[in-house]
Structures are given as structure tokens and as C-alpha cells.
Design a protein around this nucleic acid. Structure first.
Lengths: 203, 203
DNA sequence: GAGATGGGGGAGGCAAACCCCAGCCGTTCT
DNA sequence: AGAACGGCTGGGGTTTGCCTCCCCCATCTC
């Protein structure tokens, strides 16, 4: 949290307050209090500072907990891959912090009605057949199996026995799960509402 | 173009005129006059009615001719695949006609600064490795070869001989090229700036 | 009618990507 | 010491996309 980021937050707050169609219910929430704040106010839109998140997967967690709240993520200079990860995690918009304040306000309006906003850098898809568009392939079926047991607190050895696979295989799946969800331990994982991820990976 | 679409155009025109930060340089352009109108005014943003385009590839053609003009496409109820096709063709935003007028104005502002806006229906990517983000895969290398010869006016038989493949194969490639570019004959193709498509398909 | 073109379907071979599984080497934490 | 985490490699399987070619049909032109 540099002074520079503070200034950005202050300026943005000012702009949001000025808009007669927007109501600012809370701001300056620390990372640990975001979930509670959204739970209290149930806003139509939440603007998140990417750098202040505990992990990229916090976006996923928030989207699972409050699907009716549109999430706008402010990142420093997001790459196309990062933007798509944010959308995969349930964000509605992903903006660069270089974005002008008025544009952030505009994006909040569009996001409140479900429209996606991406920075210039994000190419936004590509192939014509749309094969990669039907839902998020975040986790493979087998990874979903492992995730489910991981969240129940099982050890790798227990998971291996439950799924009739080798311990090393469980470790491989776990590694890929951590990488895909942007976390690095079981504890981070425990805080995610993984059940919804399973539903997505299986339908 | 039904009366209903006329009403949409009139309402949108009114909203664009009202915005003090926007200057409306032309409107109600027929499909055949779009290119000339953009050439005359060189606007920062052009709002296109998808249903009024001669073909989806007209977006591509306009983007090649005037890369500095951001293209906002209004489609009836665009699918995710259609939106991504529009982005592949160089559009900056793709909106549903169900979008509220104010949101269209907001999207125009964002598009003027290069940001992408997509309707709710567009999932916007998916896989995490970003493999599908590196440029447009509009045409396969072989299709690009065939397109090049097609634009030189070669017959299918001549193309087959030049590429040392069968006549039926050429016809297959040509069909896929037409489908991907949204045209339906060699004559439509001749009007496209296909050289740029080749560059995209090859780099 | 013959030839060229556009549009639909399908088939086989090939290469790339992905997934599942498993092991190796380390480090870190408790 | 045991468990977990992370990087790297590999085999074997399926899936996908691309290339090639074939069949059918209709239209248009000469």
C-alpha cells in the first residue's frame, strides 16, 4: 500500500460519490474484511484492488459467496491471461489502474448490468467455433475429485487410498489445483467455497 | 430494417447528441456508405448496426482500413461466439441491442480509450494458460495460402495445381474461408483487404 | 449440356494439446 | 522424522484441429 495507491483510492472514492446514480456504501476495506463488508451491504458492484487481495482466488471465493454482486477488479497492468483468469474466477470487469477515473465509473455502471469490461491489452477470445466458451474448465474432473477431499481435510495418503491412485498422483493433482486456483496451501484452499467449483467442473 | 430498428437508432442518436463529451459527426449511414463516412470524418468511435452490415467481415474490412477508429457493434442478441468473432474482426466492443441507451454511451466512452465491452452472455475466454490469446487464428496456414490465390483471381483448378493438392481440397478450404470471413463468393472476397488477414494468420 | 462455382455431408490420417498417472529431485514446516 | 509443497520428467490415453479427399446437390454461364 504505497501512498500512490492511497491517492488512487481517494480519487476514485470521490468520483464514485459524485455520481448521482451510485451510492457508496463502504470503502477502504482491508482484505480480510471484504467478505464481511459485502455480506453486510450486498452491493450491486464491488470494486476490488487486485494488489490488496489475499490471493487471486479471493475473487473466486467472493463470486461464489455473493453471485449477485458484480466484481470489478483493478489491477496494475493486467495481462490478457490475468484478465481472463479474473473472468474465470467470476469477475465481471478487469481494469488497469491506468484507467481514467471517469472510465472506472462508466465501467461500474456497465458491470452493474452484467456487461464485461476489459482493458485494451485483453484480446478477448479468438477462435471462431466458440468451443472454449461453454463454461469454465477451471478444474479437470479428477482434480475436482481431489479438491473435494482436500477440502474435507484429508491427507494426500488418505486421498490416494480413497481414489485408488498413487500418492504421487495425488500430489500432482494437488499441485495443479493450487496453481489453477492461485493458492499455495491447503489452508488457503479451506477458505474457498469449493463446492461451487466442483459443480462447474462437472456439468 | 424494421421500424423498430429505426426507433432504436433515433433514441441512440439523441443520447449521443446529449453527451457534452461526444460529438456526433454522422449517423444513419447506409451500409454501402459506412466506409466513405468513416474516411471523411475519421471518428474516434463508430457505432455499427450488425444487422445493417453487408457481412460480418465488413467489420474486419473497416478495422483494416481505419485501425484508429474504434468499432462498437450493436447486435440483436449476440452469442458468445458471435461476440468473439466481432473482436477477432477488430471490433472493440460488442453490445446487445437490449442494452440501455446510457450504457451504450458509457461503452462508447470506454471503447474510445480502447477498452473492450462485452454483453453478459459473453463468457470471455476460459482457459488459464492463455494459449488462445496470442493473436487471431482466423485462418489456418493452408487457408491463408488458398485465400491469397483466390484474391489473385485464380480458379480452383489453378489453385489446386499451384499448391499441389486436389481440386476437392481447394473447394473445402474455400468453403471454410468463406464461412470464417462471412462472405459467400469470390467477388465478396475481392473487396476485403485480405493481405492484412494473411499477415495475421502467419505471424 | 458441359464446366465452374457454391454449399452440404462425411472419412481417414496426422500432429498437437490435454488429462491421468507416476516417479524423481529438492525445500519447508511442525 | 513425517508430511506437505514445488519443479521437472515421462508414459499412455483421449480429444481436438487441420489437411486431404470424396460424395451429393443446386445455380450460373457459355
Amino acid at each position: 500500500m504505497s501512498k500512490f495507491e492511497d491517492l488512487v483510492a481517494i480519487g476514485l472514492t470521490h468520483l464514485l460519490e459524485e455520481d448521482p446514480h451510485l451510492e457508496l456504501v463502504a470503502n477502504g476495506i482491508p482484505p480480510s474484511g471484504i467478505e464481511a463488508a459485502i455480506g453486510d451491504h450486498r452491493p450491486a458492484v464491488a470494486v476490488l484492488n487486485f494488489g490488496s487481495l489475499t490471493s487471486p482466488a479471493q475473487v473466486f471465493q467472493l463470486h461464489q459467496s455473493f453471485p449477485e454482486t458484480r466484481l470489478v477488479v483493478l489491477a496494475n497492468r493486467p495481462t490478457a491471461a490475468e484478465c481472463n483468469q479474473m473472468l474465470s474466477f467470476g469477475a465481471t470487469a478487469c481494469l488497469s489502474k491506468e484507467t481514467q477515473g471517469r472510465d472506472v465509473v462508466n465501467a461500474v455502471h456497465l458491470a452493474s448490468r452484467g456487461m464485461h469490461v476489459l482493458p485494451r491489452s485483453a484480446a478477448g477470445g479468438g477462435s471462431l467455433d466458440g468451443s472454449q466458451l461453454e463454461g469454465s474448465d477451471l478444474l479437470t474432473p479428477r482434480e475436482a475429485d481431489v479438491l473435494e477431499l482436500l477440502q474435507e481435510g484429508a491427507t494426500n495418503a488418505q486421498i490416494a487410498q480413497a481414489l485408488s491412485i498413487g500418492l504421487e498422483t495425488v500430489r500432482t493433482h494437488a499441485r495443479n489445483i493450487y496453481r489453477k486456483l492461485g493458492v499455495s496451501s491447503r489452508r488457503d484452499l479451506a477458505r474457498l467455497a469449493g463446492a461451487a467449483a466442483l459443480a462447474e467442473a462437472r456439468d
